[in-house]
Write a protein that binds this DNA or RNA. Structure first.
Lengths: 254, 254
DNA sequence: GCATCCAGTTGACCGAAATCAACTGCTGCG
DNA sequence: CGCAGCAGTTGATTTCGGTCAACTGGATGC
């Protein structure tokens, strides 16, 4: 082994993955040394997107998976009538594009919420490398699975939680997800509009607006346009667990 | 090549996968010949479950993926307070257990809705075989992706569709999924209770009951306890696409 | 064969959130 | 600088589906 080459690789790596702030969520987790070097070769085409521009559209051919490097995106479904449902918001370190694996074309859309930069992982190459690096396949499936589990939580929320609880859970979730990106205090800058939040939560914008006001009045948080400061994390946590309607209780037939 | 051996393999195969009625959905799709032989070796422990008994529980160690061979199951989340949300119903040919990939333990529960038989795919062995059969990995990811897409549809439904539309979509979906299992007419036998249906749809049982009655009155279908006969598939399809509330419309900021 | 139990249905009423409407205040453009 | 336009807020009213309650009828068991 030429140690000069190793240093070069490390630099390469630093430019691409290691510095990407996605230490915990991204593909490389659990992959080390030479394997990481190989993976590094997969990543190319670091694109940047302006607010409102699409990463992929419904029907686009499946070419790659994408890692959010900075900024944020939303993914959503839109039917012929124009009805729209936001599926998820994607923060730095998170991977999107898995919807296209099944049919080799995207069945949802992804759009930047703000100026964002994206790492592109061409799927064909990812599969090539995976043949040499078995751990990569497993890691990839683990990531998809994690996304599925997150969607389960979203579903529960939509299933039947009162409006205030939904917003509380949404905010708590953002706090948690931003926690391993920045260590500073509990202040959020919401990159998505009130319309987006409402849609994501299965509510209307008026309801979300009223809830923000109410939460501010009760001292849970301080809102100013896009910026939200959590004043009482304890109260917020409480709001995530209010009493649920009776029909969610287990109805046994054992 | 010894042709006698090939015949043996085919018999083996017939006993396990090919006869399993999961031609389209199951793992082997897109996998042929020797590869299929290898895969066949993975499948073991064909278990049967009685109505109400668990395939896995929240917190169980991840050992295997499961294919429904006959019968049906529900998967659901249940929190400490006992609140429950059904995530999906699983019909013959469908795979479940992917929730455990992320954390190596199940984070949901699976329970038989009726007497069911299940193929167990031990994950460790599946991974071994996958190393020799690259197509298997890809197929596996395709299956997870398909499940994700199905969950997206569920989410849209929960997001904000009126009650009647939810039930219509649910029934339409069952019809579609049973379509490649049996070619006979449009009669369903619902293996799940009204409570399960209501919970899955984010409604209460009374609402579901009223909707069945209404759909029967309008001649869309005929209900008798667990059996549902779709009299007017055209009307049912229409009910899946009524007008949605305004806040689902795209709210542009391009 | 009758009593019990519980899934399922039906009806009356209520309430949380949607709708409708008016207004506020950024933001960006000529 | 001032106006247009739209995101966001606030208030009044409506409505869909949930809650509560009573009832039905099929299944199970003694």
């Amino acid at each position: 082994m030429d140690s000069g080459a190793v240093i070069l690789d490390l630099n390469q790596l630093r430019r691409s993955c290691a510095s990407c702030a996605l230490h915990e969520l991204c593909l490389p987790a659990g992959i080390y040394g030479n394997d990481l070097k190989q993976l590094d070769a997969v990543i190319r085409d670091k694109r940047t997107l302006e607010r409102g521009s699409a990463l992929y559209r419904d029907g686009d051919a499946f070419k790659a998976l994408y890692v959010v490097r900075s900024g944020s995106l939303k993914t959503f479904l839109q039917n012929e009538a124009g009805d729209l449902q936001i599926l998820a918001f994607h923060l730095p370190g998170e991977i999107l594009g898995f919807d296209a694996l099944a049919s080799n074309q995207h069945v949802s859309q992804a759009e930047a919420l703000e100026h964002s930069s994206i790492c592109e992982l061409p799927y064909a190459r990812l599969m090539q490398v995976s043949n040499d690096v078995p751990a990569l396949h497993r890691q990839l499936m683990r990531v998809i699975s994690r996304e599925m589990v997150a969607e389960h939580r979203h579903l529960v929320m939509m299933g039947r939680q009162p409006a205030q609880e939904r917003l509380a859970i949404f905010l708590q979730n953002l706090v948690d997800r931003y926690a391993h990106l920045s260590r500073d205090d509990i202040a959020l800058t919401l990159s998505m509009s009130r319309y987006d939040i409402a849609n994501y939560l299965g509510l209307v914008v008026e309801t979300v607006s009223r809830l923000f006001t109410r939460m501010q009045e009760t001292g849970v948080l301080e809102v100013n346009r896009k910026s939200v400061r959590i004043l009482r994390p304890d109260l917020l946590a409480e709001l995530c667990n209010t009493q649920h309607p009776a029909h969610l209780k287990r109805h046994d037939h054992d």
